[in-house]
């Protein structure tokens, strides 16, 4: 009986300890973010890695998301005779929910996993220890530029995703299904408020910090050997994806 209780207790304690460890990691890396010198060159390289290189896949995913939304929305709206609302039916979910969430998931898969593996391999091949030995702060060199790159890149990628999705929906709704182009855009402008776009941007900022936090943490404190890095990468991707969806729900309730 006491054995069972002890098991529950130690489990809870270890979860709490891990959470605290993660929080301390975040606070530490953010505190280095405001102390010069800043590493602009590394920041540029990270924006290139997280942002520019993700553009192709974001454009691809965005256009097909918009097209699917338009296709399904059109057939649903036709049943109630209000095809005119196709524009907002594509744009509202895209800007408020799908844009931030799906682009964050995509970037997690493309860039987050790579970041975890990169930092993890630096850890197991003792490059991080070498940096520390040379009195170069690994947080400042590795984590802070990545965090800032994510804060810059995530909202921009989300915006690209939204715009491409809206034009993908335009292609299907107007060019293939025969809606008038004026209806599509004017209804969209009529229904969308700045509020919706702000919510989308807040969400993508949150997801950017969340993904980078989890991925950098998992890589920074990876296990031993190749197996440890592979496990850390898997954990980072799974945990980021789950956290994105959970955070999306709670941000949704907060902003509704």
């Amino acid at each position: 009986m006491t054995g069972l209780l002890r098991m529950v207790g130690s489990g809870a304690l270890s979860v709490l300890r891990k959470m605290g460890h993660m929080l301390i990691f975040l606070v530490q890396s953010l505190s280095y973010a405001f102390i010069p010198p800043f590493k602009f060159r590394i920041l540029l390289r990270e924006i290139q890695f997280i942002g520019t290189k993700s553009m192709t896949v974001i454009v691809l995913m965005g256009s097909f998301t918009g097209m699917v939304l338009a296709l399904q929305g059109f057939h649903l709206l036709r049943k109630v005779g209000s095809e005119a609302l196709l524009g907002p039916a594509v744009a509202l979910p895209l800007i408020r929910e799908l844009g931030p969430v799906l682009s964050a998931l995509t970037i997690t898969g493309r860039a987050g996993s790579a970041l975890t593996a990169e930092i993890g391999i630096m850890r197991i091949s003792e490059q991080i220890d070498a940096l520390t030995a040379m009195a170069l702060n690994p947080m400042r060199y590795l984590i802070v530029p990545k965090m800032f790159a994510a804060i810059i890149a995530f909202p921009l990628l989300t915006a690209i995703y939204d715009v491409v999705g809206i034009y993908g929906g335009y292609f299907v709704g107007v060019k293939l299904l025969g809606l008038s182009s004026g209806t599509y855009f004017s209804q969209m402008e009529h229904f969308l408020e700045m509020e919706d776009i702000r919510i989308g941007i807040y969400k993508s900022l949150t997801f950017g910090i969340l993904v980078l936090w989890v991925c950098c943490y998992k890589g920074f404190y990876t296990g031993y050997g190749a197996e440890g890095v592979s496990k850390a990468t898997t954990e980072a991707v799974v945990m980021s994806s789950v956290l994105i969806l959970i955070a999306d729900y709670f941000l949704g309730t907060l902003f509704i």
Binding site: R45, I95, P155, L156, I160, D162, V163, E193, M194, I201
Partner: peptide, 27 residues
């Protein structure tokens, strides 16, 4: 060219952000 690649990405991203906020969000 690192600067060119980053500049290209930032430009496209900011144009898209501007488009949705000014045209659709009526900022």
């Amino acid at each position: 060219d690192l600067e060119l690649a980053v500049g290209f990405f930032l430009l496209i991203g900011i144009i898209c952000l501007g488009y949705i906020s000014i045209k659709l969000g009526k900022l």
